[in-house]
Design a protein around this nucleic acid. Sequence first.
RNA 1: GGCGAAGUGGCGGAACGGCAGACGCGGCGGUCUCAAACACCGCUUCCCGCAAGGGAGUGUGGGUUCGAAUCCCACCUUCGCUACCA
Length: 850
Amino acid sequence: MTTEGEARARAERYEPTAIEPKWQARWAELRLHDTDLWDTERPRFYLLTMYPYPSGALHIGHWYIVTPTDAIARYKRMHGFNVFLPIGFDAFGLPAENAAIKNRINPRDWTEKNMDNMRRQFRSMGATFAWDNQIATCDPEYYRWNQWMFTKFMESGLAYRAVSAVDWCPNDGTLAREQVEGADRRCWRCGAEVEKRELPQWYLRITDYADELLDFSGIDWPEPIRIMQTNWIGRSTGAEVVFKTAASDHHAGGEELRVFTTRPDTLFGATFMVLAPEHPLVASLTSPDRREEVEAYVAAAAAKTEIDRLSTEREKTGVYTGGDAINPVNGERIPVYVADYVLMGYGTGAIMAVPAHDERDFAFARKFGLPIVNVVMPRDADPDAVLEQAFTEHTVDEVMVNSGQFTGRPAADAWHEIVAWLRDRGLGDTAVTYRLRDWLISRQRYWGTPIPVIHCPECGPLPVPEGDLPVLLPDTVDYQGSGENPLNRNEAFLAVDCPRCGGAARRETDTMDTFIDSSWYWFRYLSPHNEEGPVDPTLVEQWTPVDQYTGGAEHAVMHLLYSRFFTKAMRDLGLVSQNEPFRRLFNQGQILGADGERMSKSRGNVVDPDDLVARYGADTVRLFLMFMGPWDQGGPWSPTGITGVSKFLGRVWAIATDPHGREPSDPQAGQLAAGETEAGARDRMRSAAHRTLRDVTADYEGFRWNTMVAKLMELSNVLWRYRGTSVAGLPEWDEAVRLLLLMLAPAAPHITEEIWSRLLEGRGEPWASVHVQRWPVVDERAVAEATREVPIQVNGKLRDRVTVDAGISELELEQVVMARDKVIAAVGEGKVARIIHAGGGKLVNIVVKA
RNA sequence: GGCGAAGUGGCGGAACGGCAGACGCGGCGGUCUCAAACACCGCUUCCCGCAAGGGAGUGUGGGUUCGAAUCCCACCUUCGCUACCA
């Protein structure tokens, strides 16, 4: 004879820390989740998640990315897919170098140590990574193929060298944008004044692929990402028009001044021109009396960062050069200004200014008292009306005014007519411009892929011959306390013979942008140790494009665009046959610190998952991150609520391991609710289980983790109520428990595995992992119900509800509804105009007229 | 300025033309306990009411509809990206 209290004390409690390491070890030992890439029997599923930077430790944000991704992997395996879920490290980059300078250690040692710690943490999640395929981009067997592809790109002309300006500190060398601090532009490390320095650097011709990158057909990406990439590429169609400089005392004239415009129809309204401060014609156009002013303006513009230059100034600034140009359509002489609202990097670095029809030009003309000539106006408007603001409308009903032979023409036609007129005279033609610029990949840094180039004084820059690759980063590195690239001082690295003439030559010391590494890493995962080439052609054909990519939305443009570009470039080298890297993309939100700011060590708001795992167990942490809210939303971290998830798992444990247990403080323990029959309870369990299965399956497919967890909680609540009653342990109960465990298994893999093994043992059956079970199938008969509750509205207001037979006809339902007391009261003296049966009998609305 | 996303209880959120607030947190009351913690049971949008019940309610103001948190228009606020792109 035992009391209920004793029974409860005897029942084993859920102890996550006891069972989780055990199963992690067992799965690894059995190689349960290794992927056989050569298995072609099962359909493949390549699931990729963005690899982390080895910063030292995983934070809760990494878990937020990875654990739902792992749940997808486990879910897909239960559907019979051969799932490949690799992991690696984005191991080159600046933080390692900073740590190395600070502590006088080698970046490699720092990085290796961090990776070891993070691998340990990844294992504690219970994530099913294909560890055999991991990569670290700082490994020569990885970066040698960056170099190999770069030399191929040099041969095909996709890589080229050109001069451009970088922010430069005399002590620390090149600085990244965030390393220049304050309005007076000082180096973040040493405080020295930052200058701009012109350096020859390497580029990749991504603009060659601009049009192809605008085509998203065949990939299932979120609309906002496609829009952002499209805007980033920024294709615009217009015309290039050739102006000529006018002769004057100080300038011979006749030089071509090309501009790009999207509004060639407004050419007659161009009353001045504006050059970017960096434009090559500025110097020769400037008159002696204006030279001082112009040079000061140009210098001031150069000292500003692009952000300063573009963001802080609402007010237009600029100076007159003293030079003029000739408008090719009407021969008029117009002044040429320099202003920093024109960018050298876009179009031709010069514009024709049409103040009447462009807001910026209008503001500039107002400020400098320049003429404003209307050339496109609504059909009925006064052509010479004084505008209060630029008239930029471009519908169908404008006509040309003040435009010579084109006056009176519909503006929509004039666009093409004027371009044709220019083309006939060799003065211009249609042109397309992109906002996208070529990809500058040179970094004046040590900790990256050495650019495999040899500079020979006789033969110029040459690619390192294939047989001499890789160009290894030397291991001995002496920073001397500054950020200047130590390769510049490394004579053993620098000295090399020219591969063409054999003479003494020097190695290139720039390394590659780390975005190169991440632009093709998913191909390398398939054959990380392949020595024949960057990719294994057979495996690439079999496994790519990636079926599902998950990662942060902060990479919406750069990484995702570069990866698309690289895929196409690799295709054109004959390495792969795909056009696109990632078939389906999901961007999850970011977990912020409790203060609502991005998590960072410097803010001190980083949440360490190890503490949470020690306290609640990995399954609870996984499930809580999924339960928090929609995956694409993220939000500030708050651990309140984790107890709810923890309690839920405790109940699942109790339901499955101790179905006949009772809670002594529950007054109803051991009894069905008043009025509930055993048969009814059995139906209810079956129907709840199968409805949950139907809904949870849909939630898994749509990555709706929060509602998925909520529905499993509901099912567990139903079973919780029946625990210890006469229906616990009946076949319907067992089936519901089985479905609950299978549905929970991908999200909370350890507890489900432990319970599953105990249930098998209890039945004397041999062990089989819950994670190799097939995903269950919904029994539609169980989902269907005999009766349903119908809400009744009168004039759209809920007044009553009634439970009826599921098969009731509309006519019968109306009779029942109209006989209800509350309905009669609500209708009152009014006249029933119509009765609406909404949503296939889901609801009845009685429309009453007064 | 542009583009994108979003405004729902004390909080995270659910519902996305048809019962607003699923699920959970927190709070309140209770059981257990010498007591507390844990666990368990019940209540919990707001207002009026002992209750039955009634009224209001999804950022604001309009509109469409038998019916709007959901669709449309205007506005306000917050977040993200981008920033004079000719």
